[in-house]
């Protein structure tokens, strides 16, 4: 598979196909889990959601639980795949680094015209911190959800305290997951971040934008004496 930018295009590869697949598998299944999770509350019939064309199923708790399980399979498998694959590939660029909190504060100040934005590596310090935050939330959702599923399937008389912990942890992480999703959407609406939308849709990002905002990332290619446009996933140090 060629990772060359199309001839004459002002582009550089930011995400490999496998990263796009992981991201969208987790994102789409995560949104579906929010929806089907909400329908596990007795709200659909009460609030006439069942009257909306295409959502009649929302009042059927058994069916919505089946859907919740279905999307959980995608969500859990994709999340575990992500962790394991990038761990073995040695991709560490998105993990939080020392000084990220301080640097994030500088970035936020710069958005309000106070001071200059520092030069970035592949990911913004906020992205690295947000990644860690969402990873904790997803881990909590998966762990508590697996306990609940195990109870439903194999151990209905599981210890009450474990069931209550799993249930309320799942509900709490659900709220945090929704908040994290809203924050994620808000972040991509900020003007300087918008060119990154293209990267998560196509894998490619504008080269002039990357050189201007992510010079440390671009410099990594220069250190290897390789043209940025020709960079491959395997060649790039700490690619993901």
């Amino acid at each position: 598979m060629s990772r060359q930018a199309p001839e004459g295009k002002n582009l550089v590869k930011r995400h490999a196909l496998i990263v796009l697949v992981e991201h969208w598998a987790i994102a789409i299944s995560g949104l579906a889990l929010i929806l089907t999770g909400l329908f596990e509350l007795p709200i659909a019939r009460r609030y006439f959601i069942t009257e909306i064309p295409g959502l009649r199923w929302s009042g059927d708790y058994v069916f919505s639980l089946q859907l919740h399980y279905l999307f959980s399979v995608v969500f859990i498998a994709a999340s575990l795949f992500h962790v394991v694959y990038h761990w073995f590939m040695g991709h560490r660029a998105i993990l939080p680094q020392k000084g990220d909190l301080r640097e994030s504060w500088e970035v936020i100040r710069s958005l309000f015209g106070k001071g200059e934005e520092p030069p970035f590596a592949k990911y913004l310090p906020e992205q690295r911190l947000a990644y860690a935050g969402i990873a904790v939330i997803i881990a909590g959702l998966i762990a508590s959800g697996l306990v609940k599923t195990w109870k439903n399937l194999f151990a209905p008389d599981m210890d009450l305290w474990l069931v209550l912990w799993a249930t309320w942890a799942h509900n709490l992480f659900f709220v945090l997951f929704v908040l994290a999703f809203v924050a994620h959407m808000a972040a991509i609406l900020i003007k300087p971040n918008r060119p990154m939308i293209r990267a998560i849709l196509t894998g490619w990002i504008r080269r002039d934008y990357a050189e201007h905002r992510h010079p440390l990332w671009i410099a990594e290619f220069a250190l290897q004496k390789k043209p940025a446009v020709a960079v491959t996933e395997q060649d790039a140090p700490c690619q993901e």
Binding site: S72, L80, L146, N152
Partner: peptide, 28 residues
Amino acid sequence: KTDPMARAVVASPVIGLVAGIAAAAGAR
């Protein structure tokens, strides 16, 4: 009716784990 899919949920961490290792091995 929900049991088969619930079983798939319980198996899904293993699916992700094995697929991740296989993909990493292939890429390497």
